[in-house]
């Protein structure tokens, strides 16, 4: 019997970058052009096998508009990972991403796994944010970075698999949800 680990993941990012779409694609494998904007937050779960464990993602999708930022702590509190999404066609959204990273670093849980998703990669011909910028930034903060397309189901599974891998395996001696494993170790593992 495989052990099920519940992992709380929150999605952050500017409005309209495709947070809900990524969740929708990941959970339901479905894409809707006009998915309703999230007010407050939206909650979804998906169980993914990872090694000899089952990772049950408890995904909290948040509202993108800036005035909802004040609510964000409710969602990222106790999160194992945060997916920070930007729109590769909008430079602004990348700027907002940086703000989120900063906030997470300041108020977020310690050791939270951060994954940067450059969404709408299907629209690369109108790209505003170069791949390199994102990669460089991700490296600077020690975050996973991947360019995704919720519309075309590009790198969505991979994004969450990446997160799964970043989550340290459950220590039988520790009951804590919050795997207090050093970032350095994890990166070395992936590498």
């Amino acid at each position: 019997m495989m052990a099920i680990r519940e992992l709380k993941v929150c999605l952050l990012g500017d409005t309209g970058v495709g947070k809900s779409s990524i969740v929708c694609r990941f959970v339901q494998d479905h894409f809707d052009h006009n998915i309703s904007p999230t007010i407050g937050a939206s909650f979804m779960t998906k169980t993914v096998p990872c090694g000899n464990e089952l990772h049950k993602f408890l995904i909290w999708d948040t509202a993108g508009q800036e005035r909802f930022h004040s609510l964000a702590p409710m969602y990222y509190r106790g999160s194992a990972a945060a997916v920070i999404v930007y729109d590769i066609t909008k430079q602004d959204s990348f700027h907002t991403l940086k703000k989120w990273v900063k906030e997470l670093k300041e108020h977020g849980p310690e050791n939270i796994v951060m994954a940067i998703a450059g969404n709408k990669c299907d629209l690369s011909d109108i790209r505003e944010v170069p791949m390199k910028d994102a990669r460089d930034y991700a490296e600077s903060i020690g975050a996973i970075v991947v360019e995704t397309s919720a519309k075309n189901a590009v790198n969505i599974e991979e994004l969450f698999q990446g997160i799964s891998r970043q989550i340290p395996p459950l220590d039988p001696h520790e009951n804590s949800n919050n795997g207090a494993i050093k970032l350095g170790k994890q990166t070395s593992q992936t590498g």
Partner: peptide, 17 residues
């Protein structure tokens, strides 16, 4: 369970959706 995670938007948009 933090119900406000669920109920927040009930209040903000008066149950629409």
């Amino acid at each position: 369970i933090d119900v406000s995670l669920i109920t927040f938007n009930w209040f903000l948009v008066v149950f629409v959706d």
